[in-house]
Nucleic acid binder design. Structure first.
Lengths: 104, 104
DNA sequence: ACAATAGTCAAGCATTTGCTTTAGTAAAGG
DNA sequence: CCTTTACTAAAGCAAATGCTTGACTATTGT
């Protein structure tokens, strides 16, 4: 569970993979379509796609010879929740601190 | 701006650094205190702290010989916003798709 | 049947990452 | 003053990462 969070953040730390996720948030694309904006081999793009799928950021299905990639929100939500959790703890602490300071 | 997002995600992709952020969300700690739970040299922890600070996840100030680390929410919020943005686009697209399908 | 398209697999390679060790500096405490 | 504490800076190293190339498979179009 919390080990997966690391893999999600790692996936999103790469500029190319983050761009791919951005493209896919506008709708599904084939691997070749996804590869088009990038100055790298199709083989490299496939490796990125595999990594994105393995950590649950995208889902893919193949029909005929074309593999279609589609965004999956579950990993996105998991990462969001982790960030919110840290922020919430921090803010709650500041609130308690404020309470103590405003005592008379 | 969007280049920084990559550095934030990269910082959070490491288990040790993510644990440090988790610890710091409960309140500020000195570098030595922060290092205590980890099976690694202080020098290694300092390197993590430097990286966390350089991408805006934490803030540090030194007084005497002790350097205190404190969580900063700005980077946390930036990452959260990016994730929300992707999720929102994707969900809006699903909504439009639903509208088209429910036409009579 | 033959070629073009779409993707896959494996090996190899330069760079980056996460550490370590060693050698320092500066502030506190006895 | 001398030692301990808290951290820092630099060099080095093994493992991981992001690519490439080359060879290959499976589907589609002519």
């Amino acid at each position: 569970m919390s080990a997966d969070i690391g893999r999600i953040f790692h996936a999103l730390s790469d500029n190319a993979r983050r761009s791919m996720v951005e493209e896919l948030s506008n709708g599904p694309l084939s691997v070749s379509q996804l590869a088009q904006p990038f100055d790298m081999t199709l083989a490299a793009v496939v490796q990125h796609v595999n990594l994105l799928e393995s950590c649950g950021l995208i889902k893919t299905y193949k029909q005929g010879r074309v593999r279609t990639c589609e965004l999956e929100t579950t990993a996105l939500i998991a990462a969001e929740k982790w960030l919110q959790g840290r922020k919430r703890l921090w803010e709650r602490r500041l609130d308690r601190l404020g309470d103590v300071l405003s005592e008379d």
